[in-house]
């Protein structure tokens, strides 16, 4: 039990380091895209440690407790995340719903402390975050429902294994769901951008409109901890995406490549987009993505047309 918990902590730490460095590399790539050099690859680390070294302000015990609960929840979720087929902390218990709902704990912690800070901009930011969550979550969950229905497992590692090797008995095994459910992949990609809060759906951290939303009142170590939480959340969501659609990873290198490709593609797309208004985000996700998701689910489950 203790070994697996330590293993989990190391997975979480690995996730943090991996995501922060990839984020730094991405900032460099974006820089190059804009014909400028872009920051050092470890700039994200510098930012975080600079924040942790500063002495900031607190608005009461709920303001701090919320940040601790948020970071704790996200670290807990990351501990469950399988990296490769056999490299995971708790084999057999990495259920998909744990990830969806434990992220909600992180969300709740941050939302609670943001509203506790007494700044209306923070509450508006939290409200927008929850509204966007309500929007992008439904299509994503429907596609995951199809995947779970097809594979018959809801634990991530089994789903990954299902896509890697073609088992005789199972009907659609062996092909990545990216290819097997193309429409589903597109919808999931859109929801992933919503989850990561990347540009088109960045309504809740909109610096111009509501002064970086929930993070208005944070400075110093609270902001640093929230940055760590943000990095680990991104790690969870992207690796979730990798396991569900790109067939997980036999060894660590394949995982790193797939992870990098997914994150960079999301980042590149997001950098050429403007920002939606909050009403547009909700209406957008309930028009085409939901329609395609239901159509894909119906086709995959009832008619069995899976590539």
């Amino acid at each position: 039990m203790i070994i697996s918990i330590l293993m989990g902590i190391s997975v979480a730490f690995f996730g943090f380091v991996l995501q922060t460095s990839i984020a730094g590399v991405n900032r460099k790539i974006i820089g190059r895209v804009q014909k400028r050099y872009g920051p050092k690859w470890y700039q994200e680390f510098l930012d975080i440690f600079k924040l942790l070294s500063k002495r900031s302000v607190t608005h009461g015990w709920i303001f701090d407790f919320g940040v601790i609960m948020a970071l704790g929840g996200i670290i807990a979720t990351a501990m469950f995340m399988p990296i490769t087929n056999d490299l995971m902390a708790f084999p057999g218990f990495d259920n998909f719903f744990i990830f969806v709902y434990l992220i909600a704990v992180g969300m709740l912690g941050m939302a609670m402390s943001a509203s506790g800070s007494g700044n209306p901009l923070a509450s508006i930011g939290v409200m927008r975050a929850l509204t966007t969550m309500l929007a992008y979550e439904i299509p994503f969950m429907i596609i995951v429902l199809t995947i779970i229905k097809l594979t018959g497992h809801s634990s991530l590692s089994e789903i990954a294994m299902f896509q890697q090797t073609a088992v005789a008995g199972l009907e659609f095994s062996g092909t990545w769901f990216m290819i097997a459910l193309p429409v589903g992949f597109a919808v999931a990609f859109l929801s992933l951008m919503g989850m990561l809060g990347k540009k088109p759906f960045e309504t809740y951290i909109a610096p111009a409109e509501i002064a970086s939303g929930p993070m208005v009142e944070y400075g110093g170590k609270q902001l640093g901890m929230l940055f760590i939480m943000h990095e680990i959340t991104v790690f969870i969501e992207v690796s979730l995406f990798v396991h569900l659609f790109l067939g997980g990873a036999e060894n660590i290198w394949i995982f790193l490549i797939k992870y990098f490709l997914v994150y960079t593609s999301v980042n590149l797309i997001s950098n050429v987009n403007g920002r939606f208004k909050i009403d547009q985000v909700v209406v957008f996700f309930y028009k085409w993505p939901l329609l395609f998701a239901v159509m894909q689910a119906f086709v995959a489950i009832y008619l069995g047309w899976v590539i």
């Binding site: 918990i5 970071l71 704790g72």
Partner: peptide, 29 residues
């Protein structure tokens, strides 16, 4: 248990670093 462990880790990070200055709720941006 895992959630507890996560919170403990976050609490340790929080305690190790410098104490923040208590500010009234009305003193916001």
């Amino acid at each position: 248990v895992v959630f507890g462990v996560g919170v403990v880790i976050a609490f340790i990070i929080f305690i190790v670093l410098k104490k923040s200055r208590k500010v009234d709720l009305m003193d916001t941006y």
